[in-house]
């Protein structure tokens, strides 16, 4: 598979828009600005709840752990690594400069973010993997998405803190992700690709380029002609949106990649055809009956997200982060931050 793997040296924000010039009408800009605020409010309202999940006491042996059932209630004998993705959510809250964001630029928040990722780095297995459901699990899913969260945090905050030592320690995780595959679950493969692409953007070594390139080729091969990634043998709009969001974030880091851009274009066209108010937002229509939708990867230069997707979310057709009572609210709120940022940038380019 031919590849155009090129690192965007100016990439700072995983959610930043790299799609070139866009021309938008004044009406579309107004809609995007209004809906950007809805997504931002949802994300910001989730942040304090996630703070409560994390051990913020520096003297604690579990400082930085975000699995409250482990560090506080002591109901489990290992920490679920997926909770550590809180570090990326906090990083978005830290860098967001919107009026009314009371977490923006707070030094204490920066300390917590560092503690979250230190805990994650410390609790990995010797081969760099992490556990989600049982000790020594070596979970591909948890390793991929937490590693992607760590890398995106470093990209967001590389000017605010020195991450050199942490990047040296995370190499084993990247090596493991490069060697292992889970083609039955494309969203996890996309997570691994995002981690490896971001890692290469940060360290720029020959091995990191090879790892990212190989994972990129693997994920490209999983897409069908419509840009759809089947989850457990069928179409699932929730997981498709997660895969698209993850690939779009990777694409923002790597810069031009014609194959990934083409997949995202085809997938967006398919999603616009399938996600209509009369037939597309029902969980029962999804292969895994997924109830959520990650909006950031669906945003294009049209009004589909502002005028169709977000009103459906507001109507209650899909889950919001503030409705979720488990760890998945963390990643969804993070995507709401990304989507709000993209909509704001689109409105700004008009």
């Amino acid at each position: 598979m031919g590849a155009l793997f090129r690192i965007n040296k100016n990439a700072t924000l995983p959610g930043a828009l790299n799609s070139g010039a866009l021309v938008l009408g004044a009406e579309a800009i107004g809609v995007m600005t209004n809906n950007h605020q809805f997504l931002l409010d949802e994300a910001l309202n989730t942040v304090p709840r996630v703070f409560g999940l994390c051990d913020r006491e520096p003297a604690s042996r579990t400082h930085g752990c975000c699995d409250r059932a482990y560090w506080h209630y002591r109901q489990t004998d290992f920490a679920n690594a997926r909770f550590q993705e809180s570090g990326l959510l906090f990083a978005h809250a830290f860098v967001d400069t919107s009026p009314g964001n009371q977490f923006s630029g707070k030094p204490r928040l920066l300390d917590w973010i560092e503690a979250v990722w230190s805990f994650w780095l410390d609790r990995r297995s010797r081969d760099g993997t992490v556990a989600e459901a049982y000790p020594n699990e070596r979970s591909f899913c948890a390793t991929a998405f937490t590693a992607a969260g760590f890398i995106q945090t470093v990209l967001l905050l590389r000017e605010a803190r020195d991450w050199t030592r942490s990047l040296g320690r995370v190499r084993t995780t990247m090596q493991w992700l490069a060697k292992h595959q889970n083609p039955e679950v494309p969203n996890q493969m996309a997570g691994a690709y995002l981690a490896l692409a971001g890692y290469h953007a940060l360290v720029g070594s020959a091995e990191s380029q090879t790892w990212a390139q190989q994972k990129r080729d693997a994920i490209v091969a999983l897409a069908d002609d419509d840009g759809i990634f089947n989850e457990y043998g069928g179409f699932d709009s929730g997981y498709q949106s997660l895969t698209m969001s993850t690939l779009a974030s990777a694409h923002d880091i790597t810069g031009e990649d014609e194959d990934i851009a083409a997949i995202l274009d085809r997938a967006n066209a398919t999603m616009r055809d399938r996600l209509t108010t009369d037939k597309g937002f029902e969980p029962a229509a999804n292969s895994r009956q997924t109830q959520y939708l990650y909006p950031s990867g669906l945003i294009g230069d049209d009004a589909f997200v502002p005028e169709t997707v977000i009103p459906e979310i507001e109507r209650g057709a899909t889950l919001r982060p503030s409705w979720m009572d488990d760890r998945y609210c963390i990643a969804l709120a993070t995507d709401y931050f990304r989507a709000a940022q993209r909509l704001q940038e689109l409105a700004g380019t008009g």
């Binding site: 304090p48 709840r49 703070f51 409560g52 913020r56 006491e57 506080h72 204490r108 928040l109």
Partner: peptide
Amino acid sequence: ARFFDIRELD
């Protein structure tokens, strides 16, 4: 409970 208190950020 050790839930979040906004004063922790000060």
